[in-house]
Simulated scan of single mutants.
Amino acid sequence: MKIAAIDLGSNTFHLLIAEYKNNQVDIIFKTHRPVKLSENITLNNCIIPKAFERGITCLQEFKSIVNKYGVDQTKAVATSAIRSAKNGEDFVKKAQELTSIKIEIISGDKEADLIYSAVKASGAIKEKSLIMDIGGGSTEFIFCDEDKSYWRKSYDIGAARLMQNFFKSDPISVENMDTINSHLRATLSDLLEFNKEFKAINLIGSAGAFETYLEMIQPETDLQLISTSSIDIFKYKDLSSNLKSSTHRERLVMPNLIPLRVDMIVMAFVLTDFIINNLNIQQINMSTYDLKYGIVNQSYNFATK
């Protein structure tokens, strides 16, 4: 049996095709496209026409790939951008009309559940941890250990949303960062409160920005060959300091920093730094398994390989 998992993220659409055979799940194809569905979404809380068109075009391409692989079942989920946009339902209806792909708009809690399922399957959870998935529109947090999750929540503080609201200078100014940190402190007050008792020592990043952190720190890393990896926290802090003081032009030529993340990575660092500093995090790990792997896991009720 073959299943296609499609993650309609705020900035990137992902397609993963897996096959269940011989009592295991094998990933046979995966790709992603920088759709930037959340472009200027904070202006009037709508997907703008150009982004709307890019999204539909991408799904038409994904549909062709799905047909080529003879997929038996396709599961597509939409997250923050579509969930919050006034015309999000319009996008879902248009996509189904033109591609026959049925899209489920999932809640933040459901998104967090799928992320936890994926990260657990990767083997990254070894002790009291906080899983963090930085998206374009939202960021999900899950407090957990190797046995279960204890607390989860999704917040509308994705990298693209923060960038559109707070990134006003090049390089980012101390004033901008102070404003973002004040916003994060108010927004994440319940998370900070929960951790006073939980005391997570390990931060686990789910793919995305954390893959970029790892690739910039360890350029020799082949993400296709790993499901999880540690990230040296001291090298991370040096990289964060360097990126936050850099200009857009300087970041454009940095190795292993893709164009889509050239500016949003600054927001990702500010957000990650806030968590590390306010929770007294001692170590960082990352999982290459993310939302789309969670869709596969729950569909097959089998750990992803």
Rank of each mutant, 00 (worst) to 15 (best):
K21P: 06
N22I: 08
Q24P: 00
I28E: 12
F29Q: 08
K30A: 01
R33C: 10
V35G: 02
V35R: 01
E39G: 00
I41K: 00
I41F: 00
I41A: 01
L43D: 05
L43I: 13
N44R: 13
N45K: 06
C46V: 04
C46P: 00
C46Y: 12
C46F: 12
I48L: 12
P49A: 04
K50S: 08
A51R: 02
A51Q: 01
F52Q: 01
E53L: 12
R54I: 00
R54K: 11
R54D: 03
G55P: 10
G55R: 12
T57N: 14
C58N: 13
Q60W: 01
F62E: 06
I65M: 08
V66W: 11
V66N: 09
N67G: 15
K68Y: 14
Y69Q: 11
V71G: 07
V71N: 03
Q73S: 13
Q73Y: 15
A76L: 05
V77E: 09
S80V: 06
S80K: 10
S80L: 05
A81G: 06
A81L: 10
I82G: 08
I82Y: 07
R83N: 07
S84I: 10
A85Q: 10
K86V: 08
N87M: 06
G88M: 06
G88D: 09
D90H: 12
F91M: 11
V92W: 05
V92D: 09
K93G: 03
K94Q: 14
K94W: 00
A95S: 15
A95E: 11
E97H: 14
L98G: 05
L98M: 15
T99A: 09
T99V: 08
S100D: 15
S100G: 03
K102D: 13
I105M: 11
I105N: 06
I106R: 05
S107C: 02
S107Y: 09
G108I: 02
G108R: 08
D109A: 07
K110Y: 10
E111F: 10
D113L: 12
D113P: 05
L114W: 11
L114K: 13
I115T: 15
I115F: 03
Y116H: 14
Y116N: 05
Y116F: 14
S117L: 15
A118C: 09
A118F: 09
V119N: 06
V119C: 08
V119Q: 09
A121V: 02
S122N: 01
G123R: 14
G123P: 07
E127W: 01
L130Y: 05
I131K: 00
I131C: 05
M132S: 11
G136H: 07
G136N: 02
G137Y: 04
G137K: 01
G137I: 00
S138N: 02
F141H: 04
I142L: 00
F143G: 02
F143V: 02
C144H: 00
E146H: 11
D147W: 03
K148N: 12
S149Y: 10
Y150L: 05
R152H: 11
R152A: 03
R152Q: 14
K153A: 06
K153S: 03
K153R: 13
S154T: 09
Y155V: 01
Y155A: 02
D156L: 06
I157S: 01
I157H: 01
G158K: 00
R161K: 13
L162Y: 03
M163I: 01
N165Q: 13
F167M: 13
F167Y: 15
K168F: 07
K168L: 13
S169I: 03
